Computed example of a mutant assay.
Amino acid sequence: MKQLILTVSLIASVQAFGQSKKLNVLKVSTPQQLQQYFKYTGNDVPLISGHRGGPDKNAPENSIEAMANTLSFTPATFEIDPRLTKDSVVVLLHDDTLDRTTTGHGKLNSYTLEEVKKLKLKDVNGNVTPYQIPTLEEVIVWAKGKTVLILDKKDVPLSITAKLIKKHHAEAWVMITVHNAKEAKFYYDDNKDVMFEAFVKTKKALEEYEKAGIPWAQIMAYVGPQDKPENKEIFDLLHQRGVMCMISTAPIYDKLPTAEERAKAYVQIIKSGADVIEADRAIEAAAAVRSLAPAKSKKTKFFGKK
């Protein structure tokens, strides 16, 4: 009952946060539609994923408020970071400590959910906001019909993540980050509908996914954080298999000092062959690459307003 009250309270808070804003949503309601959304066709709209939920001023990382803020500007998926509390509840937090992004101190796993819910989140400038750390279940419930969540691997056992996706029948809007073919095979053997953001940085890694029998239709490939000529070989191999390729701009290009430099980098990444940009500055990245979208693409059917 306490968990239900927390969920209802959080959703009401987010509705108030974005009540005057229409959201740009992804119209994906089945696992097959999610596979089509990420299928490489050669005539695709550049896609945006908000790293750590796409944080911004007054919109803390790994919060529903940050995701709602991003969706008020652009459709996007969101990479988020599930971790366990002391009482084994899955919540969103990137670090294993609370200090950087919350009003708490010390290790997350020394706090119960009840204690975590008394804390407030800090935004990208370190300012304290009214917002709380959400549970993963709260985020899954909120995201349905709006966006797609991509769960990074932190300290949550693979079996718990798999169980949560099954509990909410969330295969259409919750994806899993896997670092290797072994992790992908665990999830795929458990659930044939699950979709992956898979680390495929090398030809060897590609061959390992194929050997494990993971369908390429259920993979969107993370190729790395750098736009470099050496990416072309892996881009070509993945595109031949109908797989979209993602570059994460968070470690390097999001940190460029001016908006102009960042925009130039985002555009070049797409022109170099990437199909998806995962950015801390998701709103900036979306604006920069919008003009690169083809005049006609079957992918536009997945974009809507709510």
Score class of each variant (00 low, 15 high):
G104C: 07
G104P: 02
G104L: 07
H105W: 07
G106A: 10
L108A: 07
L108E: 02
N109T: 07
S110I: 00
V116Q: 06
V116F: 07
V116S: 05
V116I: 15
K117I: 00
K117D: 04
K117N: 12
K118S: 09
K118D: 08
K118P: 03
L119T: 00
L119K: 01
L119H: 02
K120V: 00
K120R: 14
L121F: 04
L121H: 00
D123S: 04
D123A: 05
V124Y: 01
V124F: 02
V124A: 01
N125W: 01
N125E: 04
G126E: 10
N127I: 05
T129V: 11
T129G: 10
T129Q: 10
T129P: 09
P130S: 11
Q132I: 09
Q132E: 13
Q132C: 10
I133R: 02
I133L: 04
P134Y: 03
P134R: 07
T135I: 12
E137L: 05
V139A: 08
V141W: 05
V141H: 01
W142T: 05
A143H: 02
K144P: 00
G145M: 09
G145A: 09
K146S: 13
K146N: 15
V148Q: 10
L149Q: 08
L149C: 07
L149W: 07
L149V: 12
I150K: 12
I150M: 14
L151I: 09
L151W: 08
D152P: 04
D152M: 01
D152Y: 03
K153A: 15
K153E: 14
K153D: 14
K153V: 15
K154C: 10
S159T: 11
I160H: 12
I160Y: 09
T161V: 14
T161C: 05
A162W: 04
A162I: 02
A162V: 04
K163T: 14
L164Y: 04
I165C: 08
I165K: 04
I165R: 05
I165Y: 10
K166E: 12
K166V: 00
K166Y: 03
H168K: 03
H168G: 06
H169P: 00
A170E: 06
E171N: 12
A172T: 02
W173S: 03
V174G: 01
M175R: 04
M175S: 14
T177D: 13
T177A: 06
V178P: 03
V178Y: 02
V178N: 02
H179T: 12
A181N: 03
A181P: 01
E183G: 06
E183I: 08
E183D: 15
A184P: 07
A184Y: 08
A184H: 05
A184I: 08
F186S: 06
F186Q: 13
Y187T: 13
Y187D: 12
Y187V: 12
Y188D: 09
Y188M: 14
N191S: 13
N191H: 11
K192H: 14
D193R: 11
V194Q: 01
V194W: 06
M195W: 00
M195N: 08
F196T: 04
F196W: 05
F196K: 05
F196S: 03
E197S: 14
A198G: 06
K201H: 09
